Computed example of a mutant assay.
Amino acid sequence: MTPSQSLRLVIIAPDLLEGIATDSHARAQAERSRQLRIGLLENGYNIVAVLPADTFLYERLAQLQPDMIIVDAESEARDSLEHVVMATRDARRPIVLFTNDNDTSHVKDAVAAGVSAYIVAGLSPERIRPILDVAMARFEHEQGLRRELADVRIELQDRKIIDRAKSMLMQRQDLTEKAAYDKLRKAAMDKGLRLGEVAQRMLDAADLLG
């Protein structure tokens, strides 16, 4: 199984059936959407659903658990993106937007909101796989940076809490700084918790007991 075959995609696209019979613009967009889906299938991607960008999108994505979201939009791209960003706020996923809309005024906002790739035109099948590969790589890199930043924040917060707990032990139990730290560390090892978690529990207990 190739990486593309194991990648589960959800496409977010407007319903064009109503105007397709009389509206040439709708027909052109429908054909572009068809070519995009054909290109994805020809490259071996697994399209698990095509969904509208509506208020039910959060629940549908939570149920389907796709690996990547493809936004197929034109003039309504901004509205679609708002729905997608809101629907993925708790479980981030790479988002790739394909559009023929030459108005790129909101590209910066789209990227800032979490879009991994913003593709204007150029839906030839041979371009699709490298676009999605780069989008996935960029998403994974950004997720790694977010995890590192979160770890740094936790470490800084833990350090402050540990210092407070050490000071309390030194004052209340007449311990040296090293002895207070060793006591916290032993408690953390015994309970299988982070040092910061043990320190916070100790502070909470001290506040409760006065």
Rank of each mutant, 00 (worst) to 15 (best):
A28Y: 07
A21C: 08
Q157W: 07
V198R: 01
L7Q: 11
A205L: 15
D101H: 14
K186M: 09
R194W: 04
M170A: 03
Q5N: 10
E74H: 13
A21W: 07
M86G: 07
D151L: 11
T104M: 12
A13K: 06
L123E: 12
R93F: 10
I162N: 00
L149K: 11
T55P: 01
I128Y: 00
D158W: 00
L40T: 02
E177R: 15
I47E: 05
A77K: 14
M202H: 09
V96E: 02
A180N: 02
D133E: 15
A87W: 00
V152L: 14
G192W: 04
E142D: 15
Q143D: 06
L51Y: 01
R127W: 10
S116H: 05
E18D: 12
L41Q: 15
L61T: 01
Q143E: 15
M68N: 00
D182A: 09
P66V: 02
D103G: 07
Q5L: 09
R159Q: 12
I161N: 01
L97Y: 00
S33R: 07
G144I: 04
E142W: 03
K166T: 06
D109M: 14
L36N: 06
D54N: 13
I38D: 14
D204R: 12
A49K: 05
I38N: 11
L208K: 13
A49L: 07
D204S: 13
A30R: 04
S75M: 10
D190H: 09
L184R: 02
D103C: 07
I47M: 09
Y181A: 10
Q5V: 03
R164A: 13
R92K: 14
A113N: 06
V85C: 08
A21Q: 11
R34A: 12
M1Q: 08
I20M: 10
N43H: 10
Q63L: 15
P94D: 01
D67G: 09
K108E: 13
E59W: 08
R8Y: 08
E197D: 13
I128F: 05
E59Q: 12
F98T: 02
K191Y: 06
H25M: 11
R37I: 06
A137G: 09
T22W: 09
Q173Y: 12
Y118H: 07
I119Q: 13
Q63S: 14
R60K: 14
A121L: 09
D72Y: 02
G122Q: 15
G144Y: 04
Q5I: 04
M168S: 11
H106C: 12
L41W: 09
M68D: 01
A117S: 12
E18S: 11
M202Y: 11
D158A: 05
M86R: 14
T99V: 06
N46A: 15
A150I: 05
H83F: 11
S116W: 05
R8P: 03
A73E: 03
I20F: 06
D90R: 12
L57Q: 03
K160P: 03
D79P: 03
N43W: 05
G19P: 00
D207G: 05
A113T: 03
I47D: 04
A112D: 15
I119T: 07
Q171E: 15
L16N: 01
E197N: 05
E59H: 11
Q35C: 10
